[in-house]
Amino acid sequence: MSVKPPLVERVKKRIRAPVFAVPLLVRCACLCALSLLGLVACPSDDDDDVPIDLSGPCELDSLAGRFRVERQEQFPVIDGSVANGVVPVTILEELEVVGPCKLLRRNNPFCDPACEPNFTCDFDGSCIPFPENQDVGTVTITGLAELVEMEPVEPGNRYFDTSLSDPLFQPEDEIVLEAAGEALDGFRLEGIGSDVLELAEDATILVEEGEIILVEWPAPTTEVPATIELELTIDQHGNSPVRIQCELEDTGAAELPAEVADALLNAGVSGFPNAVLSRRTVDSTSAGGLCVELVVGSPRSPDVRVGGHTPCDEPDDCPDGLTCDLAINTCI
């Protein structure tokens, strides 16, 4: 027996995510080898400390491309793509802002009749060409354990490399991505390596109505201007696709206001809770009149518990007075 999950409620709105401008002093010292190939201009010795801006993430309604340089839990990952437009359904509606967090909802645009192949539905009910990934030429990434050069993979003009050294980067590594340009003009993005986010095996985020949400992670050992991004979703199965997205200072812990838990729970819960916690830097720039970003970080997935639901695999997992119902992995 299961409670019927709440149904979807969606309206047509778009959000504009804040752009974080993080001034930085980044030593520019690692590009001389590339300069010999004519790919990168080599700074003079006088430019040893070059102030740069990490421009932060793109706004969702202009986010056409993303490259990731990540030390994921199982693998080092580099991938990315740049499209010539934004898929409307990826533009999330900002329902509420609470402290450092935003409550976001995915709204599915509706077109009748349904759009033909190579088209997608916009929020005004019209079918628009589905954004296509573009060839941006050779993409080179320096500052990692090894030089990475990527060509677009057809079909789809996606860039990736699955033969990477591990660890991919170290804290304070200065990472530069350059696209040579082809169908779109070239661009340059920067990032900084940070301590890999190693969560405790039992790291858990508890979401309870009316309660502060405590998020903990190991504080960094190096001074890198990275932030912690938390994405928290309780609702699944398409019934109420709402998520919490928080940008947190990298201090090792954060207390999210109780209003965050209430906002998420009030949006409806119908499925498996999950979260991604990521220590990262984000830079962005213009490409083809839209926005492309570089994320350098280490995402991890802590367990999430919704109030009243205590997961278990054996009797000892449960608090006093409760037993483990193995059929549903829940202390009852």
């Binding site: 027996m1 299961s2 019927k4 999950p5 009243g308 639901h309 829940t330």
Partner: peptide, 16 residues
């Protein structure tokens, strides 16, 4: 009040 994995909800088998 029952929790079937997505928080506490008022439930009665006959409702569904």
């Amino acid at each position: 009040c029952s929790d079937w994995g997505w928080g506490l909800m008022c439930d009665n088998a006959s409702w569904w």
